[in-house]
Design a protein around this nucleic acid. Structure first.
Lengths: 223, 223, 223, 223
DNA sequence: CATGAATGAGCATTCATTCAT
DNA sequence: TATGAATGAATGCTCATTCAT
């Protein structure tokens, strides 16, 4: 990141007094960055990206609007940071779930559950990531698509394995994993969009019915 | 300074033909109305409701922004018109599909297919209807929620029937129909959001796998 | 098309001096506030409240329209500030005049003269306060009506005293003070509206004739 | 008034059928003109000139906005027509009152009463004429200021007479008549602006006190 | 590092006015 | 004569962003 303005050679007295350890300062900065991200995320979610102004974000965190620009280049950048972080977290969650011990099928179940769980626990991220169209964000940032792609591949990988080991019916792994993805996405997005309909109990029922449907429907019964 | 506003420069008669017979004029008006609706829909979809201005819509249809106001009271009204029409069409599609002859199960399949088909054929409507949050639109127009509610009920009705006639496994009809809804929504919304991944062939495969999954997974095999 | 908004072109430092010491800065801010108030007042007066736009005010003071909003919440607020300040000044003027030494009659004369003088010295304030209907301003700001009410009461108070001490003819104090008010308002508003007719000399004559008329006409001659 | 578009040589059938007597047609036109004037006056008064749109006027009379333009050239012209008519009526009222039989003093009283009465009976006209600033209206229409000027002169004429015949104290007639004018205007405008304070009874009291004040104060008692 | 001041561009909406019918 | 359609300009206001301190 090209530092645009070099630091002055001589620190002012005031600066020296305020001077804390370098680590401490950086930590504070990061904390603020994260703060901004969270506030912005929550607001974007509630009122849409275009519906929220930098000033509103600033007000929520108790800083001036200008301060945000010290942490993020502009509004787009801020949004991207949220979505990007979302994908990193998402990727971690799926990755962790996929490493559960057991046969491919239980790992598949684990990943599916993790998918839905992520969405329900991070509705802000999920909506920003999957329920709105921010293609434009990645247009000029293709280099940073890695975690997004990786996430997609985790599931496909497991499905492939499950098919190869004969636990799932024979078929194109991409097709099958897309179906699973779609089921997960359908439940998650509906649950987020209309929480009233998705009480905890109802959701549990739904998940159970769904899992059973998947198992009865996709598993190769001959084994 | 009550300065006189100058009269707008008119386009020559040849450029645009208007003011013909009364019937013709009304037809032209309706056509323009529809035109606005379509343009607005496409734009809202791509950039979000808040991301699109009346001016942008106007420019797309080649009229001044003011003209839109002759057809729709305001921006909200315009969006509502789109969503409302979407639900009317949606309702018709589901209704028609549900009246197919045969046992509840084949009607269920028919409705599911109709659901996905509607989304794929009317991606603009679908996204505005289901992939964004426009609760506020109906807040003051509860009287016009009919087609929306009716749509939701079609599927639930069929599921209930299928359970009662023993074709589907015993269970709460609402849970079961929600699962089906979620599956349909998952496929549809993914297909719309990422068309590259959903070629016609791939989609057919997906639908087939899905249908089979549903049937194997939810149907009461004892019958 | 979330197109980036370009940064505004700034004026060179030399052109306008800002950002000095904190105290200096606050002083500058107040000065600008006052500047806006004056410009707005003059314009509202000449073309009516509805006839003037924020942009026109801004242009008059050489700032952008946005800047006004840093000082006043909105157009109503701006108008209110003017009228309110007017009443504060008016109240002070009447109050001071009423405290002149002497019998009630000379204090009455003093207040009448102060009334007219205020209007002539502050024609902008006067017209906005008394020659246009801005009831709506106070509808939601009843708490701030104090100076206005106080002003009205000063004259009535003196008249009451003058009647009680027998210097004015017996009669309803409210009626009498309203007559005096009307006379003062008549002269003041005509003088403001048609300054050509009200040269300094002519005005002096008018005031003299009027005062004499009041004294001959309202004073109880038996004393 | 230069007719911009000449009438077609051949009347269409429809036109011939609709054809009524010329007189009847003109009468209808005038009636509509008057209708527009009244509606516009009432609205201008209530919401200010700038606060009212042509469409609002049109809606009030149940015609399209375009129709107004057939009767008045533009909005300014419409306002002017109102004010002009007001001055014509005002002039008539004062003129009639000044022709009452009797000595100059009773004629003076008659004119003063007529002044106030006009304002109270035609508050719309009065406010538009005297309580708002429409200088711009007359800037390019100086030829039509006649009734306005005439009105001003009626009172001055009587005062001059009264002084010459020794009924009023010696003094500059212009000064004296201006004082009277101011008193009349003061009462009238206050009564219009704040009707709550000016009940019929209160107003009568005020008028009586005022008249007495004028007589005691301005009349030459030596006669 | 954080901020106050400032601004050009943009937004939804309304307006006065014109034109052809 | 009256009107529907259309429009450029304007309005109050908000926004993202910059700059110098």
């Amino acid at each position: 990141m090209p530092q645009k303005r070099r630091a002055p050679v001589r620190q002012s007295t005031a600066e020296r007094i305020r001077h804390v350890s370098r680590a401490r300062r950086e930590k504070a900065k990061e904390e603020l960055s994260r703060n901004i991200l969270q506030a912005a995320g929550a607001l974007f979610l509630k009122h849409g990206y275009e519906g929220i102004s930098m000033r509103q974000i600033a007000e929520k965190i108790g800083y001036s609007a200008t301060t945000i620009y010290r942490h993020y280049e502009n509004k787009d950048d801020l949004l991207f940071a949220i979505v990007y972080e979302g994908f990193v977290k998402f990727n971690q969650a799926l990755g962790k779930a996929s490493k559960v011990s057991g046969d491919p099928l239980s790992r598949l179940k684990s990943v599916c559950a993790a998918y839905v769980m992520f969405g329900l626990k991070n509705p802000i991220y999920y909506q920003l990531m999957f329920m709105q169209r921010f293609d434009f964000l990645f247009e000029k940032r293709s280099a940073q698509q890695a975690p997004m792609i990786a996430s997609f591949e985790v599931m496909q990988q497991i499905v492939t394995e499950a098919i190869q080991t004969g636990r799932l019916k024979r078929g194109d792994p991409e097709t099958t994993s897309t179906v699973l993805w779609a089921v997960g996405h359908g439940i998650t997005s509906l649950a987020i969009a209309d929480p009233k309909r998705f009480s905890k109990r109802r959701l549990e029922e739904i998940m159970q019915v769904t899992m059973q449907m998947i198992l009865s429907g996709l598993v190769d019964a001959r084994r």
